[in-house]
Nucleic acid binder design. Structure first.
Length: 623
RNA sequence: GGGGGCGUGGCGAAGCUGGUUAUCGCGCCGGCCUGUCAAGCCGGAGAUCGCGGGUUCAAGCCCCGUCGCUCCCGCCA
């Protein structure tokens, strides 16, 4: 039977449409029966419209209405009627009208639902993923998918307007070393050989610069075979960008403009024209994170000096141990950090209970802090409780207490928290975790506030203590800042890269760098991290080969689309803004991937699966 | 690889110190109801309490193991 095709959507009818004959198509969102009269709320992507089957309706119409259940897909033909004043629903966009049904077709029926299609559905995520098509019918999910679409569109609009070409790069590529684990695709034509799915289009976008494309972007799907998190999925989307003949600030300004455009167009939010710039070291010292949440200040302070003068042996031991390790490293010519004692003043929270403080300490311990000391500032501005006896009173050096309170800017009624560690980074990061928790607990994390910042001046190298060698902190094509070029080899630990991250509300939103375009400099970097020329040639040969043919100076960045949309939507998991995400074990509960495949498929790929007596499986590839 | 949390009708939860017939809301089925809009009212069905083992006179509850989910640490150049 030919179905009644819609002439209007469920979101568009208004009082001015009264009298019109229309057809609506949609799903039964609600049904309310009052004896002979039946109300239906019909829903589609555009909204909800009330349909009335009246008491004097034809028998066939009433019978059809009687059969309806939640989520039946139906077509209704009828006349639009303005509702009497007392029956207008001000909460509905279409609340001024209703459709008086004249003909009702049941297009398809729906089984008893595993959960209601509703904003208030509190089904567990696992179940929502299994029945994702039902979950996505809800307005809250439709809003998020629409926002994602609009963000992607605004990104394209802005970049195309700035002269960028959208260029696709391959998804079957050569596996390259470093970084995350690759997802591999076996080759049928070449038994024993594999393609890799790209962790990012990094090498291709640089080669596009060598190719003279000048300004490139792509909404690129990226694949990393690592454990998932709330803000990490095995496959995710980057707004991949690369530009020729630019310096750092050109890239930052482009992204500032792009974010401004995206927020203005999609949320109507005006962002500042420029974002704060914070040096990596400063960010770690003040916020204990390289992706600080700047919706609130509550900056940490270094109280190492005070600890040294105090009688707090645990703190002094931590500093001494750190200093000893630092000295030992220095004798080997390695720049390394010592220990630190960091403090955080929590305004007005001297009334925190033992239990509350212990919960904060637990947050610090997750990041390897051995403990957290605390003190309270009483009404007289004196320190009391916890570790105060080491800094105040008769047991402490004269004047130390007043000096410390003044230095910290602590007021009566404040709570002071302190973490010491022989590793500066551990002290900072663990107390930074406490700062983050406090931000959430104290309600500073308004999801409608968007506080962007650039984190710049990242270290270029990290010392790998296990292997006693230097590793690149980011990828190997990052340009070291000019002023460090003479001392790359003599003091790698001090070298800053021409690197930048865009952070917002405690998340890393983008990461980028100016790249090395000088083959000689590239060789020096390979050499510092112990990447021998032959190996470099074998693994990145195509890139180094390309760079023999007049590569331009270039740089780029890659904002994460999923995280951006997540934050714009006020969510804390990127699964909420991905139509079909994987669960935390990289499984798709809906289609049950990954799955086993037919023996014939394996045979064509020269693959055999071996099962050990304990059930462990190994894949054997015939070469 | 490690840690926290969860697993009870289709869904979400409650279930005390181990004690009779496992409770509530939503949904489902049947009935009533002429203006509702998360409609309301009456009645009904529906659970091997994730799975396996143990302790006990007695286990949803305690113990051991296991599976699944979720958040986090590691990992993610």
């Amino acid at each position: 039977m030919e179905y009644l095709k819609r002439s209007a959507t469920c979101g568009e009818l208004r009082a001015t449409d009264a009298g019109k004959s229309v057809v609506l198509n949609g799903w039964v969102h609600r049904k309310r029966e009052h004896g002979p009269i039946t109300f239906l709320n019909l829903r589609d992507r555009y909204g909800v419209t009330q349909v009335v089957v009246e008491a004097d309706a034809a028998a066939a119409l009433k019978a059809a209405a009687g059969e309806l259940k939640y989520e039946y897909c139906v077509a209704v033909k009828g006349t639009v009627r303005a509702r009497p004043d007392t029956m207008v629903n001000p909460d509905m966009a279409t609340g001024a009208v209703e459709l008086v049904a004249e003909e009702l077709q049941i297009l398809t029926r729906c089984d008893t639902l595993p959960f209601m299609v509703d904003e208030k559905s509190d089904a567990k995520e696992d179940l929502r993923l299994k029945y994702r098509y039902l979950d996505l019918r809800s307005f809250s999910m439709q809003d998020k998918i629409r926002l994602r679409h609009e963000v992607a569109f605004a990104v394209r609009e802005h970049l195309v307007g700035k002269g960028f070409y959208e260029i696709e790069t391959p998804t079957f590529i050569r596996s390259t070393p470093e970084g995350a684990r690759d997802y591999l695709v076996p080759s049928r034509l070449y038994p024993g050989k594999f393609y890799a799915l790209p962790q990012s289009p990094q090498l291709y976008k640089q080669i596009l610069m060598v190719a003279g494309m000048d300004k490139y972007f792509q909404l690129a799907r990226c694949y990393r075979d690592e454990d998932a998190r709330g803000d990490r999925q095995p496959e995710f989307t980057q707004i991949d960008i690369e530009m020729s003949f630019v310096k750092r600030d050109d890239v930052l300004e482009l992204v500032e403009g792009m974010m401004g455009h995206v927020f203005q167009k999609t949320l109507g939010v005006e962002l500042p024209a420029k974002f704060r710039r914070i040096a990596y070291d400063e960010s770690i010292e003040l916020y204990g994170s390289d992706k600080p949440d700047l919706r609130f200040a509550m900056e940490m302070k270094d109280v190492g000096e005070f600890a040294t003068r105090s009688g707090f042996q645990a703190f002094k031991d931590a500093l001494a141990e750190g200093a000893a390790r630092q000295a030992a490293a220095k004798s080997k010519g390695i720049t390394q950090e010592g220990g630190a004692v960091k403090a955080l003043v929590v305004p007005g929270k001297a009334d925190y209970s033992r239990k509350q403080i212990e919960e904060l300490e637990a947050a610090a311990k997750i990041y390897r802090a051995k403990g957290m000391a605390w003190m309270k500032v009483n009404a007289e501005g004196k320190l009391e409780g916890g570790a105060s006896k080491f800094f105040a009173g008769e047991t402490a050096p004269a004047g130390l207490e007043a000096e410390l309170v003044a230095y910290l800017g602590a007021k009566p009624g404040d709570l002071i928290l302190m973490v010491a560690d022989s590793k500066r980074r551990v002290a900072c990061v663990s107390l930074g975790a406490v700062r983050s928790k406090l931000g959430k607990d104290l309600g500073f994390c308004d999801p409608k506030k968007f506080e962007f910042a650039w984190i710049v001046d990242f270290p270029m190298f990290e010392y790998n203590e296990e292997e006693e060698k230097w590793d690149t902190a980011h990828h190997m094509f990052t340009m070291p800042q000019e002023k460090y070029h003479p001392t790359l080899e003599s003091d790698p630990g001090a070298v800053k890269g021409d690197l930048y991250d865009l952070v917002m509300n405690g998340f890393e939103l983008a990461s980028g760098s100016i790249r090395i375009h000088d083959p000689e400099l590239q060789k020096r970097i390979f050499s510092i991290v112990g990447f021998d020329p032959a190996e470099a040639e074998r693994k990145f040969g195509f890139l180094t080969e390309a760079f023999k043919y007049g590569p331009p100076p270039h740089g780029g960045i890659a904002p994460g689309l999923d995280r951006l949309v997540m934050l714009m939507a006020g969510e804390t998991s990127i699964k909420e803004v991905i139509a079909f995400p994987k669960n935390s074990f990289a499984v798709s509960p809906m289609d049950e991937s990954p799955n086993e495949v037919d023996a014939k498929q394996l045979e064509e790929l020269s693959i055999r699966i071996l099962e050990a007596p304990d059930g462990a499986k190994t894949v054997e590839i015939r070469k």
